[in-house]
């Protein structure tokens, strides 16, 4: 079954059409890169998948169901993780935020307070958060203030937060936007590792890096062009840089008519 199925989706902010007749199928264990120019609609598409915009035309199915039914299966890493860096919050508390939608009254709980409220953090939740931090290699920072971490480390914490709810698909919006080259590579290596069990969708400007890791590429500039590059000749991702010319060659080897990218 496909993880995400988008059919005939169009979206407009006020009068301006941002997405036009988008069709996209994401299969299990895909590593999909969504690329395209600024204002081309990349983030809008991601937000629409997450149910942040009302869909007027077309539809999106997640595991064959409506978005709202399956939000818990989607892990999301937002674009700007550099906001609020002075906020007094520990790494583990940030990760525990991933559990928040499980906040529900539990009528069978012996503790009467817990029957009605969800106060503090359970042992299960804490061990789960630590497991997520271990997955991204950040366990030893669990009790540090988030502001003491570097941009790359903070991004990994955000990935841990998304992993906390055990998602089947991970959506990342520009995960390496403000991270140095070393940090970027670490993030992508991490995503590659996670991709063994989780479907990954990355929105990125950073075409050259992402194509080294992605198996599918969707280019969005109002309309969507899809490329399966899983069989294409792989660039040497251990090398310093995968230049855009190589990338263009790679994409054009599967080029279809009408593609503008």
């Amino acid at each position: 079954m496909s993880v995400i199925d988008i059919r005939g989706l169009s979206f407009a902010y006020d009068e301006q059409l941002v997405l036009e007749n988008i069709n996209l199928t994401v299969k299990q264990q895909d590593f999909l890169a969504i690329i395209g120019p600024n204002g081309g609609g990349k983030s809008t598409l991601l937000q629409t998948i997450l149910g942040m915009h009302e869909i007027k035309k077309g539809n999106i199915k997640i595991f064959g169901q409506d978005i709202s039914k399956n939000l818990a299966k989607i892990g999301y890493v937002p674009q700007n993780t550099n906001i609020n860096t002075n906020f007094p919050i520990k790494v583990i508390e940030v990760v525990l935020m991933g559990h928040i939608q499980e906040y529900e009254k539990n009528p069978t709980d012996k503790n009467w307070l817990k029957r009605y409220f969800h106060i503090g953090y359970d042992k299960d939740e804490i061990s789960c958060a630590k497991r997520a931090l271990r997955q991204v290699g950040m366990e030893r920072f669990a009790y540090q203030k988030i502001g003491t971490l570097s941009g790359g480390q903070r991004q990994r914490v955000m990935i841990a937060r998304a992993l906390c709810s055990m998602p089947s698909v991970l959506l990342l919006d520009e995960p390496t936007a403000s991270i140095d080259t070393d940090g970027q590579k670490q993030i992508y290596e991490l995503l590659k590792k996670l991709n063994k069990t989780i479907t990954i969708i990355v929105v990125s400007h950073d075409i050259s890096v992402i194509v080294g890791y992605a198996s599918k590429v969707a280019h969005i500039n109002k309309t969507l062009n899809y490329h399966d590059i899983s069989q294409a000749a792989r660039p040497n991702i251990d090398g310093e840089h995968f230049c855009e010319v190589e990338m263009l060659q790679l994409l054009s080897s599967k080029h279809q008519k009408g593609c503008e990218c």
């Binding site: 997450l50 939000l71 609020n84 935020m97 928040i100 939608q101 937060r161």
Partner: peptide
């Protein structure tokens, strides 16, 4: 805490 730290994420998580 979630709303104060990252309201966008909190919203996505159903807060």
């Amino acid at each position: 805490l979630a709303v104060s730290y990252d309201s966008e994420y909190a919203k996505l998580r159903g807060v």
